[in-house]
C-alpha cells in the first residue's frame, strides 16, 4: 500500500465489492413490495436466513472490512492529495474541466457513511441486539420495524438524500473503478461506461422507490 496506484486499486476493489452487495441488498428489499401478508412472512424469513447462514456470515465480515478499508483509505488518499495539490490558485476555474460529482467523491462518501451509521443502528443493531417482537412464524419481526420507520417523513427524506448521494458516488465510482484496475479496453469502454450508468440508475431508483412505496402503502389512508 505504499504506491498511489496500489491504494487506488484497494479503493476500486472494495468499491466494486460493495456495489455487488448493493445489488443483492436491493433484490432482498424487493420483497417489501409483495402483498402485505406475504411480505411480512417472507421478509422476516429472509432476514433470519441472512443473519444465520454460515457463508453469508463470512461474506458479511468481508463486507464490514470493505466498508472500513474504503472509508479509511479514502481519508488517507484525500490527505495525501491535499498535500500534493499545494494550495491552489488565486483565480480558479478548474471546475469547468470535470463533472462536480467526480471532484466531490469524499463529500458524497461522507453522506453515505453517515447514512450507514443511522441505517445500521436502526435495523442491523436492533435485529442483532434489540428485543424485537416475533411474527406468527416465530421469526423476529423486522418487517414491522421497517414499515414503522418509513412512516416518518423526515426519515423518508433522509433516505432519499442519502440515495441521491449514493447515485452520484456510483455514477463516477463504477466506471472509475474499472479504469483504476486498468480493465478498460477500448472495445469495452462504451459498454463499461454505460453499464456503470445503468447499474447506478437501477440501484438509486430501486432504493429510493421502496421506502416511498412503503410510505404510501402502509401509512396513507
Amino acid at each position: 500500500m505504499n504506491t498511489t496506484l496500489a491504494r487506488k486499486n484497494l479503493m476500486a476493489l472494495t468499491g466494486l465489492f460493495l456495489c455487488l452487495f448493493l445489488v443483492v441488498h436491493l433484490v432482498g428489499n424487493l420483497q417489501l413490495l409483495l402483498p402485505p401478508e406475504k411480505a411480512a412472512v417472507q421478509f422476516n424469513l429472509y432476514s433470519k436466513f441472512m443473519t444465520s447462514n454460515f457463508f453469508i456470515k463470512v461474506i458479511s465480515y468481508l463486507l464490514y472490512a470493505s466498508i472500513v478499508l474504503h472509508a479509511v483509505y479514502a481519508l488517507v488518499i484525500t490527505v495525501k492529495n491535499r498535500q500534493a495539490a499545494c494550495g491552489g490558485y488565486a483565480y480558479d476555474r478548474r471546475g469547468t474541466a470535470s463533472p462536480w460529482y467526480s471532484r466531490y467523491m469524499g463529500i458524497l462518501g461522507t453522506v453515505i457513511l453517515l447514512f450507514l451509521v443511522v441505517h445500521m443502528k436502526d435495523f442491523w443493531f436492533e435485529y442483532k441486539f434489540g428485543s424485537l417482537p416475533l411474527d406468527r412464524e416465530g421469526n423476529k419481526d423486522l418487517f414491522s420495524i421497517v414499515v414503522e420507520s418509513f412512516g416518518q417523513l423526515w426519515y423518508l427524506g433522509f433516505y432519499t438524500v442519502a440515495f441521491i448521494a449514493l447515485g452520484y458516488h456510483l455514477l463516477h465510482g463504477v466506471h472509475s473503478a474499472f479504469k483504476t484496475l486498468g480493465i478498460y479496453p477500448r472495445k469495452l469502454s462504451n459498454f463499461l461506461y454505460y453499464s456503470g450508468i445503468g447499474l447506478t440508475l437501477i440501484l438509486t431508483v430501486g432504493f429510493i422507490v421502496i421506502p416511498i412505496f412503503v410510505f404510501f402503502k402502509y401509512h396513507m389512508p
Binding site: 498511489t4 491504494r7 498535500q83 500534493a84 478548474r94 470535470s98 467526480s102 479504469k179 483504476t180
Partner: peptide, 18 residues
C-alpha cells in the same frame, strides 16, 4: 516510473478527466 512519480510527491488519480 510509477515509483518515481510517487517519490516526487504527486497525488493520486481520481479519474476526473480534467
Amino acid at each position: 516510473m510509477i515509483a518515481q512519480m510517487d517519490a516526487e510527491g504527486f497525488g493520486h488519480c481520481s479519474n476526473t478527466k480534467a
